[in-house]
Simulated scan of single mutants.
Amino acid sequence: MARSVIVTGGFGVLGSAVAAAFAAQGDKVARIDFAPSAKEPLVGALDIGGVDLTNEAATRTAIDKVAAAHGGIDVLVNIAGGFIWETLEGGSLASWAKMQAMNLTTAATITQLSLPALKASAAGRVISIGAGGAVKAGMGMGAYAASKSGVHRLTEALAEELAGTGVTVNAILPSIIDTPTNRADMPDADFSTWVQPKAIADVILFLASDAARAVTGALVPVTKGG
């Protein structure tokens, strides 16, 4: 039976790969993004652009649209977010608030508002994108790592909160993801060691599957390139 899947940040490189993977196995996919429209269409997907996921009203409107079109919500994949490399001494304190909003508040907002639908599902799933770089932060990674560490803690706390339900809550902790933006930012790096978006999508599909029904509260490193 086709499930109703929401992918936030669904217009980006990773979001597009994840949404396409769910669609390929026959699921009903909704892509929600801050960008007004997707660069590439996904056949059959419900695309909702221009959504500020830190805004409760806008997020609720998007969720209601998905639930009405697809008959509820079974899987929520939190990919929306951003990255800043900035030292504390040479950077802006506003960057800390920006990273918190983009990476943690977005996930917390849509997850909270989706909980009634997810709990009504036969097998609700919440899967978020954390970061390997939030386990131990390097120079310039403080604001980003702090926000992604918040995603890790949100995952653990919510998994325990929902332990008595049919909903599982997990997070993926990738190393550097092979995207055009990252290649442009780090042109001298060895791209072969970077994680492919499709590989991350495969892990997300597993965590969303019935085979992973007993896995919850897990922070799953995804670090192998090639």
Rank of each mutant, 00 (worst) to 15 (best):
I200H: 05
A214P: 03
P187M: 07
T87H: 11
S95C: 14
A62T: 00
A21F: 02
K224I: 07
G225A: 10
A212C: 11
A23G: 09
K148F: 03
G142K: 03
S175K: 06
F34M: 09
A58S: 15
K136G: 13
P116V: 02
A17L: 11
P221K: 07
P41N: 12
I79R: 09
S92R: 14
T155W: 11
L42T: 10
V51S: 07
G71Q: 06
G217N: 00
I177D: 11
I79G: 11
Y144D: 00
T216C: 04
I63A: 05
M186P: 08
V66C: 04
D74E: 15
T61F: 08
G150P: 05
D202S: 05
A146H: 07
L14I: 05
G49Q: 01
G226E: 14
T181A: 15
D210E: 02
R31T: 07
I204F: 02
N55A: 05
I110P: 01
A145M: 13
A157Q: 09
D190L: 14
M141Q: 06
A120L: 02
P41V: 11
L76M: 14
T8F: 02
S147N: 05
L93N: 14
D178G: 10
N55F: 03
K98I: 07
G91L: 13
V135L: 13
I172G: 07
G90V: 03
A146S: 10
G90E: 04
D33R: 15
F191A: 14
D33C: 12
P116K: 07
S114C: 15
R213N: 05
N55V: 03
T165G: 01
A80I: 12
V29P: 00
G91Q: 14
K98Q: 09
E161T: 07
E56H: 10
V7S: 06
G50Q: 10
L173P: 04
G90K: 08
T168I: 11
P197H: 05
P187H: 06
T179P: 12
A120F: 01
S16W: 10
G164M: 08
S92K: 15
A17N: 12
V75G: 15
T105L: 00
G140K: 11
P180T: 11
L154I: 09
Y144I: 01
T111E: 15
L104N: 01
E40C: 09
P116E: 05
N78L: 08
V66I: 10
T59H: 01
M141N: 04
A19L: 05
V51W: 04
A218S: 00
G226H: 13
P174W: 07
D74Y: 09
R213L: 03
A57R: 13
T61M: 11
N182A: 15
I6G: 00
L88P: 05
A58T: 10
K28M: 11
